[in-house]
Design a protein around this nucleic acid. Structure first.
Lengths: 159, 159
DNA sequence: TTTGGTGCAAAATTTTTGCAGGCTA
DNA sequence: TAGCCTGCAAAAATTTTGCACCAAA
């Protein structure tokens, strides 16, 4: 999880410039606290403190953060592409920290910290020779509160 | 995996009409054979045998197939939303058949049939009360042939 | 015949790009 | 100062919608 100081170092080391826009976008994502923002949401949040920012800059900065592997792209199939700070550690090796639980009734997204995929990854490596560097796991279902609300019969709100 | 006969029965039972367009779109997906088509690709393929079809019909039929849980939506983050026939069985209970391996060098998508997620799903159920009905697992990395091509040093082509 | 489904075109969304000017290093 | 970066607006790409007509039941 990259902080501002590290981010500045990364930019410097690549010969990239340190701008308010870049720092503010990273800050929004760093303070997301479990939320997953879309480009538009990031744009709106940055505008609160820096109204002159353009949406194109947000798109360009997000692409930059993706290229630098500082953030990850996630798609919850709600029509928006969302982003979150990558959990990748400086020493690399383990990028496997959490999975997403998506409630089909209320649309809420929960994070679950745990990695139990080593077995599966080993099997894939052995059987297919595929070298895994990262994974994305999404579980669709019904959250506790939606199950209780409907007495066990949960109704889908979205596909 | 739904075949044409079953599809017709499902449509009938819901009071929906059986049209050439619907049958042809299902046929394209049923013959995809491991490939994952985007809306545009489905449109182009159906046009070969039914040139008068409109793109809007493809979008509407795909939404219908999603609602009926005959197909699943997949996003490989290449800018296109893709679809594949759902593996869901008639008797329900198990929808957990395969995962996707996405090569970051050549972009190819491989499928891996295996489910070793029961342990993780049980844990999630127990700890969070979240009732899982389906999951989507994507592994990013480098396929065997790309590893060999580059002598073990694989170069990313895309994020 | 009735109703749902389709094709077309327009509209709405989301994302990318070109360019002149501004800011970081 | 040089060149990267930004904002704006236009363009491109993807998806949805309205409507008149057509076709399945």
């Amino acid at each position: 999880m990259v902080n501002e100081k590290q981010f500045i170092e990364i930019l410097k080391s690549k010969g990239l410039k340190i701008t308010n826009q870049r720092l503010l976008i990273l800050e929004v994502l760093a303070n997301a606290n479990g939320k997953h923002y879309s480009t538009e949401e990031i744009y709106d949040l940055v505008k609160l403190t820096y109204p002159e920012i353009g949406l194109a800059t947000v798109y360009r900065t997000i692409q930059l953060l993706l290229d630098l592997e500082i953030i990850d792209k996630i798609n919850f199939d709600d029509g928006f592409v969302r982003y979150e700070l990558s959990e990748q550690l400086e020493n690399n090796s383990s990028k496997h920290q959490h999975h997403h639980l998506i409630c089909k009734a209320c649309g809420q997204v929960f994070s679950f910290k745990e990695d139990l995929l080593e077995l599966l990854e080993e099997k894939i490596k052995k059987e297919m020779g595929f070298q895994i560097s990262n994974h994305e796991v999404k579980f669709y279902g019904f959250c506790k509160s939606c199950q209780e609300k409907n007495g066990g019969v949960s109704v889908e709100k979205r596909q």
